[in-house]
Design a protein around this nucleic acid. Structure first.
Lengths: 343, 343
DNA sequence: CACGTTTGTGTGAACGCTCACATAGTTTGA
DNA sequence: TCAAACTATGTGAGCGTTCACACAAACGTG
C-alpha cells in the first residue's frame, strides 16, 4: 500500500534528477516548468508532468530556499502571554483571513507562539535565519522587542493595532474613536441619562481613542466622574470598576466598557448590586468576543472587522515582498455594531 | 541605529565564511562549535564566539536543513473547519504545552491551519517537502486524508484522540469511559433519580465510550430511553435533544451531556421549559470549555488534562525522532472534575 | 622510545535546487 | 536571402551548511 522504503538506512530522496532521467529532459527545463518562468514546449511539459507523477517527486523546500533566498513562508507571531489566543475570536478571524490571502499567493502561514524570553530568542533566530520571508505581528505590546527585531532585520512585516512607540512597521487598526462614538450614541438612544465608561488601561492608545469617541457621543451629557480607567483589560477589573462607579453614582443607567471582558465583569457587579440588565442599566462592550456571544444577557458590542484586518495585513506583507515601500504607512478599517440584549 | 544595508541590491548574507575569516578558524571547527559535536579547543571556542558576535552571524536554516536533512521544526496541524481553534481552550492548552516541550528540545513549533482542499495540498507539500521533521495532529476526523499522508510519508507524528479507523500513528487520549463514569456518579450523588444522557454523534468513539461510563455509573438506574444521540456536538443539537428528552419523561432531574456545547443547549431548553438549574435538574458536561466557564450557572464538567496531552504528543514525536518505534502505541491520560453550580 | 589514543583542525564533497549563460532551431521581416 | 528576433533546451556555478576523512600535534604507556 505504501511505497516508501522501510528499515535500514534512510531512503534516498526523489530529486529533480530523477524526474530528468524519467522524462528525458534536463534539470533546467524541469525547473522552468515547475516555477512557470521561461519557455517550455508542450511536449516537454507533458513528459515532465508524467515523470513527476511516476517517480513521486516533491520539490525540496530547503534546497529551493537556499537557491532562491526565499521560503514562501510568512510568520504569524502571537504573544501567548496576552492570552488572546484562546479567548479571542478576533485572532482566529485574522488568522483565517490572512491564511486565505497568503494561500492564494502561494505562501504558507506559519504561526509562532511567543511565550517566554527563550521563545523570543528562538523566534528571532527563526525570522533572521531565513525560515520566513515576512511576518505578521498581532497583540504587539508597548516596547515590544519583537518590533525592534523585525525593524532591524528589515523584513516585510505588518502589525495589528497602532504601535505604541514610533516604528516603521505598517499597521492596520480599527477606527476606535468612531466605533466608540457610534455604540455610545446607540446606547444613549435607548433613553439612558447617566452613562459611565470603563476605560481600560489609560496608558493604552486604544483606550484613549475609545474615550474620545465616548466623550464625543455624550456631548453635554458627559461627566468625567463617570469615567474610570482600569489596570488591565480583565474581567475582574471590570467587576471592581463597576462597583466603584456604583458607589460614585447609584443612578447610573448605562455603561460603555472598552472591551467585552470588562463589560462582563461590570454585568456581574451590576447583578450583584441587584440591578437588572438591560432594564435598570444598559451595558455595551467592545470586541465581539466569545464572551459577548455567550454572556447572559447577550452583550451588545462593537464588532471588529477582523477578517478584513487579517487580509489587509497579509497583503501588506505581500506588497512589500513585491518591492513596495510601505514603511510608516497604515490602514484604518471601519467597525460595525452587534446589538444583543444587554442594552 | 540599525546596521543593515539599505537600498540597492540585496545585501550579501553573513555566512560561516565570514566568521571563519574573522576568527581565523576554519568552517569545520565553527560548525563543530555551533552544533556541539567533535572537539573544539577553548581558544578556538572563544575566538569563534567573538567573531560571531562581531559579524552578526546567524546560521542559515535552509542550508543547514539541506545538509542535515532535518529542520528542527515540528508541525502542529489544526483542522480549522472543526472550529475548535477559536472556541476550545483545550486546543490552546495543548499548543502551549507542546510548544514548551519542543522548545526545551530546541525544536520550533509551527502551526498549520487546514481549512480547505487547497490547504490540504499545500500542507501535504509542506510535510513531505521537508519543511518539518514531524507533526502533531489535532482534531483529526474520521477518514482524515491527513492521517494517510502522514502515514505514507512515515514521518514522526502523534495525534490527539483515538483514531476512527486503523492507523499506525500513535495517539494520546483521555479515559472517556472513566471520566463519564466519575462525573455521572457524582451527579447521582446529588440525589438525582432520573438521569438522562445526551450522547453526541453515536458513530463517534468518544461518544460511545462516554456512554459506557455513564451506563456503568447508573447501574440499575439506567434507562435506555433516556439516552439520546445527536447529529453533531453543537449547541442547537443539545437544545433539541433536551426538548425531546423532556417529552419522553418530564420528571428527568439530571442530565449528562457528552460535551459542554450540548450541555449549554440543554440548559437553554430546560430554562425554556421552566425548569430551574440546578434545583429542578442538575446538568453536567464534558470538556471544560470556555462555555462552561461563562455559562449561567457555571457548568460542572470534566476537565481534560490538555497540557498533559500536548506535552505527551510532543515527546512522542521527539522520541520517534530519536529512533524509537512508537507505531500502534498510545497513551491514556486521566481526567478531573470541575464542579460548578449547574449540579 | 616507539606506538596507540586522545584531542584538535582543515578540506573537499555532498545536500537539491535555481539562475545566468551558451547554444541552437524556427520564425519573422525588409 | 540573411539578419534579427523568438522559442526551447542544456550546463556549470553557486546558495550556506554539515559530514567524512585526512592529517597533525600532544599525551600517555608498556
Amino acid at each position: 500500500m505504501s511505497n516508501e522504503q522501510q528499515g535500514s538506512g534512510r531512503a534516498r530522496r526523489v530529486t529533480i534528477f530523477d524526474v530528468a532521467a524519467a522524462s528525458g529532459v534536463s534539470r533546467g527545463t524541469i525547473s522552468r516548468y515547475l516555477n512557470g518562468n521561461g519557455y517550455v514546449s508542450e511536449t516537454a511539459r507533458q513528459a515532465i508532468k508524467d515523470a513527476v507523477e511516476e517517480v513521486g517527486y516533491v520539490p525540496n523546500m530547503a534546497a529551493r530556499s537556499l537557491a532562491t533566498r526565499q521560503t514562501k513562508n510568512i510568520a504569524f507571531v502571537v504573544h501567548e502571554s496576552h492570552n488572546m489566543f484562546y479567548n479571542d475570536p478576533n485572532l482566529g478571524g485574522m488568522l483565517t483571513a490572512a491564511n486565505r490571502v497568503l494561500s492564494d499567493a502561494d505562501f504558507q502561514l506559519v504561526i509562532l507562539i511567543l511565550d517566554s524570553e527563550q521563545t523570543l530568542g528562538r523566534i528571532a533566530t527563526h525570522l533572521r535565519g531565513g525560515y520566513v520571508d515576512g511576518a505578521i505581528l498581532v497583540s504587539v505590546r508597548a516596547e515590544d522587542p519583537l518590533l525592534d527585531i523585525v525593524q532591524e532585520l528589515g523584513i516585510p512585516a505588518a502589525m495589528a493595532g497602532r504601535p505604541a512607540g514610533q516604528s516603521s512597521v505598517p499597521w492596520v487598526d480599527v477606527d476606535n474613536a468612531a466605533a466608540a462614538r457610534n455604540i455610545s450614541a446607540r446606547l444613549l438612544g435607548t433613553g439612558r441619562k447617566r452613562i459611565a465608561m470603563i476605560e481600560g488601561p489609560e496608558a493604552m492608545r486604544a483606550a484613549q481613542e475609545r474615550l474620545v469617541g465616548f466623550t464625543a457621543a455624550l456631548g453635554a451629557g458627559f461627566d468625567a466622574d463617570l469615567v474610570l480607567p482600569t489596570p488591565d483589560w480583565g474581567h475582574e477589573s471590570g467587576f471592581a470598576a463597576m462597583q466603584e462607579l456604583l458607589c460614585r453614582d447609584p443612578s447610573i443607567d448605562g455603561v460603555f466598557a472598552a472591551c467585552d471582558a470588562l463589560a462582563i465583569g461590570a454585568m456581574d457587579a451590576l447583578r450583584e448590586a441587584g440591578k437588572s440588565i438591560p432594564d435598570d442599566v444598559g451595558v455595551v462592550g467592545f470586541d465581539d468576543s466569545l464572551w459577548a456571544k455567550r454572556s447572559f444577557p447577550g452583550l451588545s458590542t462593537v464588532q471588529q472587522p477582523v477578517e478584513e484586518m487579517g487580509a489587509r495585513m497579509a497583503s501588506m506583507v505581500l506588497r512589500q515582498l513585491n518591492g513596495e515601500d510601505l514603511r510608516h504607512s497604515h490602514e484604518i478599517v471601519p467597525t460595525s455594531i452587534v446589538w444583543r440584549d444587554s442594552a
